[in-house]
């Protein structure tokens, strides 16, 4: 029973850590708008944390630039299991307009397993909420399988 409570809580209190790997800030602003009174992701338990150690969901925005690659890898490694990685916007996975640039090391899939990707440039806050909700469900599944 205790296990079940924990499994259920997993989906209800996902904490988010946001990494910007060279994004244009569009996605970052939209992610922040998700916690504003209008969208208020906190009603579903989402919370922005300040450190990867507290995070359940890591939101990555931006194509992985060569400057940010090392930091991204290091930070991702520090997130405790179970964790879900969300790619926000068009940049992290197919690199969007930065495809083939000398300074872009993407796609993100090279460095970790991406669980959810939210498309859009930038995604609407509603889409981000959908994506995070999906991520929370995946989190619960991951916890259950363990």
């Amino acid at each position: 029973m205790f296990k079940k409570i924990i499994d259920n809580s997993m989906a209800k209190s996902p904490w988010i850590y946001h990494i910007n790997t060279g994004s244009c800030n569009g996605c970052d602003i939209e992610l922040v708008s998700v916690i504003t009174p209008r969208y208020d992701a906190e009603r579903m338990g989402f919370k922005l944390t300040g450190t990867p150690r507290h995070a359940d969901i890591v939101v990555v925005s931006g194509p992985v630039t060569s400057q940010s690659k090392e930091r991204l890898v290091r930070t991702l490694a520090q997130v405790p299991e179970p964790r879900v990685i969300v790619s926000l916007g068009s940049c992290p996975r197919p690199c969007n307009v930065f495809k083939g640039s000398y300074s872009v090391e993407g796609p993100l899939d090279k460095f970790c397993e991406v669980d959810v990707s939210v498309a859009g440039c930038t995604p609407k806050p509603e889409a981000i909420i959908d994506g995070l909700a999906l991520a929370a469900q995946i989190l619960k599944e991951k916890r259950r399988q363990k």
Partner: peptide, 16 residues
């Protein structure tokens, strides 16, 4: 009851 969820969730996480 959100703090309860938070607490139980943290119990289920890996401790590094």
């Amino acid at each position: 009851v959100q703090p309860f969820y938070d607490f139980f969730k943290l119990l289920g996480k890996e401790t590094i």
